[in-house]
């Protein structure tokens, strides 16, 4: 039994450490969301409900505008699909990683945000940790940071005691470290460059408000065309 308790402790510790990079970003962005909701006339329970049940950062920011503007249900559906379409890609690439996850699988899928995806997409689990429990804890820690940040923001209202200007860069830095680690692995460089190049091209053509969907389509198209070249190792994989 001692080994099991050790494994549990190791898993909790490793999962917490893995989730730390997301903590600052989620708490700060969560505070921003709570502050915005408060300013729009939606109190703590609304903020809590959205952060618990939607749990998608950029969608929730957009959602404040939809709520306060009294948007139609159709508008809300279309906006959600557009803003969150990238989650289809995350899920597709996690089918293998989550294949053997048992009863926790529905929560793992529900909680697959950009940041949690970036922490778990390599499929690696630290030595001595239980894979399913580890992935669940990383997901749940991230979710809790988002909820805690949102609640704090709602309570703080518009009053912030210190300047947090620029702290949103932690998100950029998080993706950059993932990018560097992906870049180092063999066979990832052409896909990585495709992602950068296609997105930059799309940004130049469509501008910062509308480039994400074209970028995703272009990335999929280019990677599909490169399949003959990049997919050679498929049989062994």
């Amino acid at each position: 039994m001692r080994n099991r308790a050790d494994m549990r402790r190791t898993t909790i510790r490793k999962a917490f450490v893995r989730s730390i990079p997301v903590m600052a970003g989620y708490i700060v962005l969560g505070i921003g969301f709570g502050v915005l909701m408060h300013a729009a006339g939606y109190g703590l329970l609304w903020t809590l409900a959205m952060s618990l049940l939607i749990y998608a950062g950029s969608m929730q920011y957009v959602g404040v505008g939809l709520l306060s503007g009294g948007a139609s249900v159709v508008t809300a559906i279309l906006t959600t699909v557009m803003v969150n379409a990238r989650h289809l890609f995350y899920s597709i690439s996690m089918i293998r990683v989550y294949r053997d996850s048992g009863r926790l699988k529905p929560y793992l899928i529900f909680a697959l945000t950009d940041e949690t995806y970036s922490l778990l997409c390599d499929g690696d689990v630290p030595e001595g940790a239980d894979a399913e429990f580890y992935r669940f804890l990383v997901s749940a820690f991230d979710h809790s940071y988002w909820v805690i940040g949102s609640v704090l923001g709602s309570l703080l209202g518009a009053v912030l005691p210190f300047s947090t200007e620029g702290i949103e860069f932690s998100m950029t830095a998080l993706f950059l470290t993932s990018f560097v680690e992906q870049w180092i692995k063999k066979g990832n460089r052409i896909p990585a460059l495709t992602g950068l190049g296609a997105t930059l091209l799309s940004l130049a053509v469509f501008g910062p408000e509308r480039f994400l969907i074209p970028a995703m389509l272009l990335i999929t198209l280019v990677l599909s065309l490169l399949r003959g070249r990049l997919g050679r190792g498929e049989a062994e994989a």
Binding site: P191, A198, A215
Partner: peptide, 20 residues
Amino acid sequence: VAYLGKVLPPAIIGMLVVYC
């Protein structure tokens, strides 16, 4: 789809860097 699952992660991370 399995192929996409393998090559999409590095591409999506690249996309998110640009997005940020």
